[in-house]
């Protein structure tokens, strides 16, 4: 428990700390920028914006998830953190699980908060806003998990950051289909399915990530 607390404390300090200088804020700004630009691109028709706005928010959230990938693991691997923690008997799985929690905290809740101004910019009604927020609550843990798995798999690859972005998009499609699909049906079925996919992804991430980090040592 002491170890988990120490790891989480460092991860959160790294993600929210002054050293990053707004790197955590970048996906949120990107996300709001998309919501701001969309009405300029398609015209100020309120009906069209209200009908498509929820989907745009989902696409923006998915693309914003790509931005932090290159600093999730690469720097710690380079500096030998994982090796030193392994020598102290701390499994890669534990480190990755804690990293996943910290990554989601730095990404999910801020995005959900930014959805409020974004919804206002797109003129979404309160019912749609509720569905989008619930969908993001169910879907962002899955997006964070996919991001972390990809970051682990692309360790040590040249141009890993660009590749990571390309890899995330197809893997995130199921989350998008069900999460944004809940908007069209208005039902909770889509959100439940999104949550189920997220749960599965969150459950396998520590093991997939740990195995990828160990495999990278042999490379």
């Amino acid at each position: 428990m002491r170890i988990v607390a120490a790891l989480l404390r460092r991860d959160l300090a790294q993600m929210f700390g002054s050293g990053q200088r707004g790197a955590t804020l970048l996906p949120v700004l990107f996300f709001i920028a998309v919501a701001m630009l969309y009405p300029f691109a398609v015209g100020p028709n309120p009906e069209l914006l209200a009908r498509t706005g929820g989907g745009v928010i989902w696409v923006a959230a998915l693309l914003a998830a790509i931005l932090p990938l290159d600093r999730l693991l690469a720097r710690d691997i380079e500096r030998g953190y994982f090796d030193q923690l392994y020598l102290r008997g701390i499994a890669e799985e534990v480190v990755v699980a804690v990293r996943l929690l910290a990554h989601w905290l730095s990404f999910g809740p801020p995005l959900m908060l930014a959805t409020l101004p974004a919804a206002a910019l797109l003129g979404l009604d309160s019912e749609t806003l509720r569905t989008v927020e619930l969908g993001l609550l169910a879907g962002t843990p899955g997006l964070a998990a996919i991001g972390l798995i990809i970051a682990a798999l692309t360790i040590g690859m040249r141009g890993g950051a660009a590749l990571a972005g390309l890899l995330l998009i197809p893997l995130a499609v199921p989350l998008l289909v069900f999460g944004a699909g809940a908007l069209a049906t208005g039902g909770s079925g889509g959100i439940a399915l999104t949550a189920a996919i997220s749960l599965l992804l969150v459950a396998i991430t520590p093991f997939a990530g740990g195995a990828a980090i160990r495999a990278a040592r042999e490379g």
Partner: peptide
């Protein structure tokens, strides 16, 4: 293990 890396946060 001591190697050429320094596992400390540079900032």
């Amino acid at each position: 293990l001591l190697d050429e890396r320094l596992p400390l946060d540079s900032d």
